[in-house]
Design a protein around this nucleic acid. Structure first.
Lengths: 229, 229
DNA sequence: TAGCGTTTGCGTACGCTGTTCGCAAGTAGC
DNA sequence: GCTACTTGCGAACAGCGTACGCAAACGCTA
């Protein structure tokens, strides 16, 4: 039932009774190992239990639901992300932090899957917000405006990360090409003139790397949300 | 297996053999009715089949997988969205179109669930891109820059829609409050000074309605991505 | 040492899911 | 009527998250 977020009801830690053989952290680590190897959909209660050498029902002594476990995995994964060096230019630093997050999401695609499926906020997510707020200190905008900007930038990050990846379905790598094929079909049938024109025009950013792309877009959006004073 | 998007392999329509008793459209409509009433997770092959008065296996003659069906549902839902009147001011019109889309997502939350789970592009999604491109005609930016802006605006829309809703889990309406509780806990424990400061400061947009909020943010981001010439 | 309260480990089972298989049923052309 | 072909669908399979109930293991108290 999980009436509230798992972060609000910490481990009992009573000391009485039979001592636990595993901890939340060990279970989470085992689940993350499976996710790293085979993606989030392979993270099954039975699989985790098997990796720990036990039965599936045992996990429910430490985690009340599978979704709780995903929350734990995501937050722990966010904690593994260490931010880049700061230069002192806060605009560049904000962009750099988000670029580092994108690179991390590329390395652990299942984290993005989890965030999209369960947008819950854990301690490490709070820490990330705190860090970004600290970077934004020089700007004169109000706190809630900054929070708004942080939300938008994070959403933008997820959007781009989702757009630039092959696709989550393991065997379905060419579905990005399939998306393009759908678009091409629409372009060629003559009923979408603006789309066709957009595809024929020369693109100004053709030689751009994915990292440069994100940095440029992030800088533009950041300028819109928190303009120079 | 579904080697490519369902939009690229249309209905066989051979004319030979026993005639079909249902069409993709009827199946999709039945599925959408269930989703409207009980959410996307209630859309089960057996439920759809029961609504149609048949067995689950029959559906696989018209749809190769459940995910295909979700794609069909989403695209058909996008087709039900009619754009608002145009004023001639393209910036205001772009904002108004996206606001109408947000309002539609509020009315049919399962569409957002589907988009986040399966970001596939169907004919109606292509039409939406075409429409937005047409609105952007007055601007001098290149086609690919406009496509980029459209992608970002759509992602922003989904981000805000997801943030402003209770939560998808039917019985878990208070999880937004739970999110806030996690944040409050972090604010109170003293280890997040910038977060605490952001919460104490007076917010400039307190009296704002959700619609005004989206419009304001959209306008800001749009200014950043496609600035005045 | 024995008993007790309390907690964990976990085999088993339930209901549910998406999907496959094989065969019966129905239609068009020869 | 026969053949080619397609659809309808009951039954079954493998897998899932989760609940239940009891055995096992610990600290405490008598």
């Amino acid at each position: 039932m999980s009436r509230q977020s798992i972060w609000l009801r910490p481990v009992p830690e009573s000391g009485l009774g039979r001592p636990a053989e595993w901890s939340r952290e060990q279970i989470t680590a085992a689940a993350m190992a499976i996710a790293d190897a085979e993606g989030l959909s392979a993270v099954t209660m039975r699989r985790i239990a098997a990796a720990l050498g036990t039965g599936a029902a045992s996990l429910y002594r430490h985690v009340s639901t599978r979704d709780d476990l995903v929350d734990l995995m995501i937050d722990r994964a966010l904690g593994d992300l260490d931010p880049p060096m700061e230069t002192g230019d806060w605009r560049a630093d904000v962009v750099a932090v988000h670029l580092a997050r994108l690179q991390y999401l590329r390395r652990r695609p299942w984290v993005l899957d989890g965030i999209l499926a369960r947008p819950a906020i854990g301690p490490n997510a709070v820490q990330m917000i705190e860090d970004t707020l600290r970077l934004l200190t020089p700007h004169s905008a109000s706190g809630s405006t900054k929070m708004e900007a942080i939300t938008v930038l994070a959403g933008l990050l997820y959007t781009i990360a989702q757009h630039e990846r092959p696709r989550d379905g393991v065997g379905d790598q060419e579905s990005l090409a399939a998306q393009m094929a759908v678009l091409q079909t629409a372009v060629c049938d003559g009923t979408h003139p603006h789309l066709a024109a957009a595809f024929e025009q020369p693109a100004p950013h053709v030689a751009e790397s994915p990292d440069e792309r994100l940095s440029r877009i992030l800088a533009l959006v950041l300028d819109g949300l928190l303009p120079e004073p």
